[in-house]
Amino acid sequence: MFELNRKTIILSIALLALVLLPPLSIALDESYVISSMSRVLIFAMAAISLDLIVGYGAMISFGHAAFVGLGAYTAAILGFHFHEDIAMFSFPFEFSGSNQLLISLLLAMLVAAVVAAITGMICLRTHGIHFIMITLAFAQMLYYLFISLDYYGGEDGLVMLARNELPWVDLADDSQFYYLCLLFLVAYLVLSLRLVNSQFGRVVRGCKINEQRMQALGFNTYWYRLVAYVIAATGAALAGALLANKTEFVDPGLFSWHLSGELLVMVILGGMGSIYGAVIGAIVYLLLEQIFAAYTEHWMFFLGPVLILVVIRARHGIYGLLQKWWTANV
């Protein structure tokens, strides 16, 4: 598996660069880079989770940001109750929030899983563009729901007083937080690669190519697709909870269709159906955004045409180009 070919060399160099980034940027006195790269890593995770259903399951969700938002709000609300010491509920036991990272992450994933299971049951009855639109509809509903939650800040959002806590790790330190995100990203990437190559993953991929044939083979494709949808939602919620910790602030904009669109752009730009592509897409998209933004206030004026060119010229995204290059002459 670990042959010395162009692919492994490039992946190792990329990983090394990500590991060396914090000490290098501190040495170069540009330590703000660490914080913005943490954001990139978190979005890479969200993009991977979207790639799981878009690239492998042909479920083009235009509401994936909803699960990022749910994850982020779960972490923020738990933190809010913990710091204000107000009980969230008192039956069957008294619970007044938590500032433990592991608890936030687990609960974030749980909330997203429950919501995804319920909405997914309805969404998966539809196909194609109808699926795109109904996922969008549910995300919009959550968007308006959180705008109306005045208790948690409503439209203005909710400030987290401090990042969560984790034994032996100081999350308030940007470098340590960065490494935590990197660790989560690598772990999530490996897990996702294993998932898509597992028997479960093969069935879901089969549904993408020909769902009727999979049904004829005796698989209950509806349940397989629903489980895949729920798994993807938990990944997005994980990213959301980390994002809330990173920015220490959440607002309903996290549910917006704009963010869902951006996640889709990352997946397609990087090359969908390849897991690595989602990471590349997130890094390239967010870096392009920052580079253009550094030169001009009107960065979208340039980013838009770049996206269009990528779609028309590079059909399998950046990862497709790379793949062509490293399989060409090994």
Partner: peptide, 27 residues
Amino acid sequence: HLYQRDHLDQVLATFGLILFFNETTRM
């Protein structure tokens, strides 16, 4: 160039168009 492509490509390209048009009107 996009009629024969799948919906996902169309979504991405027209998303790019939105960014372009919004920014142009802002300029």
